[in-house]
C-alpha cells in the first residue's frame, strides 16, 4: 500500500484496489483547459476532500467520475469501472449529491426518498435514512417547501438511501448555519463508520480538516498536493509563530523550537508572559499559499 500522504505520479498504472483511480485526466471547454493532466487515487473506506478555488476543476473532475461528463484524455476507474460506460449496476453502487441539488418537487420528503429507494437493489430503510439526516419531523412536508438546509439534508438522504459504496458530496454544506454544519459532520462520520467511501468537495477548510482522512488541493486543473489535513503544505513541521507583548509593543518570533523559545522567554518576565500565543500555520494559511498564484 502506498504511504498515507502519497499520490500517484503521472504514468503510474491505475490502482485496481482504489475506489477511484484517475490518471492523466484532461478536460477542455473550447480553449479553456479545466482539468490538465490530473492524477488521483481515493482508497476504499476513506473520506477524501477535494479543495480548490472556483474554476480550478473540482466539479468537472467529480462529474467525470460520476459519469456526467466526457473526458478528452486520461484514464478513470470508479469502483473498477470506466464511468463513461455507466451501467445500471455500477450506478447502483454510487450515491451522488450534486451541487445543484435534486430539483423541486410536489412530493413529500418521505415520498421522494421512497421513490429514490425504488431504483436500487438493496435500499436502506426509508425511516432509518430520514432519522439519519434529521428529517423525521419533516417527512410529511413537500420537497419544494423545505428551507435551504433541509433541502440539502434531503439531497443527502436521496444520495444514501441506495446504500452506496461510494458517496460523492459536491459542496454539501453551502448555505448551512454553523449548527447545521456540525450536525451534518456527525452524519458524515456515521456514514464513514458504516464503511462508505466519500469524495467531498468543499469551500470550507474547517470542514475538510474536521472530516477528511486526506485532502487534495486542486489548482489550475492539477492536483498540487495530497496529504492528511494536519500535514498539508508541510504544516506539521513548519516554524511556529510565537507572539507576545513586551515594553508595550507586540512582538513576533518564528521558531522551529517553540517550547524552548517560550521557556527562555519566561525567564525574562516575572510570572505570565503578556498576551502569549503560539500558532502553527492554519490549513487556511497553507491552502491560500498553495493556490496563491491562482488568485
Amino acid at each position: 500500500m502506498a504511504p498515507v500522504a502519497g499520490r500517484p505520479r503521472p504514468g503510474d498504472p491505475l490502482d485496481p484496489d482504489a475506489a477511484i483511480s484517475v490518471r492523466g485526466l484532461v478536460k477542455r471547454y473550447g480553449d479553456f483547459v479545466a482539468v490538465d493532466g490530473l492524477d488521483l487515487d481515493i482508497r476504499r473506506g476513506e473520506i477524501f476532500a477535494l479543495l480548490g478555488p472556483n474554476g480550478a476543476g473540482k466539479t468537472t473532475t467529480v462529474e467525470i467520475c460520476e459519469g456526467y461528463r466526457s473526458r478528452d484524455a486520461g484514464e478513470v476507474r470508479v469502483l473498477g469501472e470506466d464511468p463513461a460506460d455507466g451501467a445500471r449496476a455500477w450506478k447502483a453502487r454510487l450515491g451522488i449529491v450534486l451541487q445543484s441539488g435534486s430539483g423541486d418537487s410536489q412530493l413529500t420528503v418521505r415520498e421522494l426518498v421512497t421513490a429514490q429507494a425504488s431504483y436500487y437493489a438493496d435500499p436502506r430503510d426509508v425511516d432509518e435514512v430520514l432519522a439519519l439526516v434529521g428529517l423525521t419531523e419533516k417527512a410529511g412536508l413537500r420537497g419544494r417547501t423545505l428551507s435551504g438546509g433541509q433541502r440539502r439534508r434531503l439531497d443527502v438522504a436521496l444520495g444514501i438511501v441506495g446504500r452506496p459504496t461510494l458517496l460523492f458530496l459536491d459542496e454539501p454544506t453551502t448555505g448551512f448555519d454553523p449548527e447545521a454544519r456540525r450536525q451534518f459532520w456527525s452524519l458524515i462520520r456515521s456514514l464513514r463508520d458504516l464503511g462508505t467511501t466519500m469524495l467531498l468537495t468543499t469551500h470550507y477548510l474547517d470542514e475538510a480538516e474536521a472530516l477528511a482522512d486526506r485532502v487534495g488541493v486542486i489548482a489550475r486543473g492539477k492536483l498540487v498536493e495530497v496529504a492528511v489535513p494536519s500535514a498539508l503544505g508541510g504544516r506539521e513541521t513548519a516554524p511556529a509563530t510565537v507572539t507576545w507583548t513586551e515594553d508595550g509593543a507586540r512582538r513576533t518570533e518564528a521558531t522551529a523550537t517553540p517550547t524552548a523559545f517560550v521557556a527562555d522567554l519566561a525567564t525574562r518576565f516575572d510570572g505570565e508572559i503578556p498576551d502569549l500565543a503560539v500558532a502553527r500555520p492554519t490549513l487556511e494559511d497553507v491552502y491560500l499559499q498553495m493556490i496563491g498564484d491562482d488568485r
Partner: peptide
Amino acid sequence: DGTLKHLAGTPMP
C-alpha cells in the same frame, strides 16, 4: 432545476 440531472445519476432505467 436539476431534477433530470439527479435522475440520470441514479440506476433508474
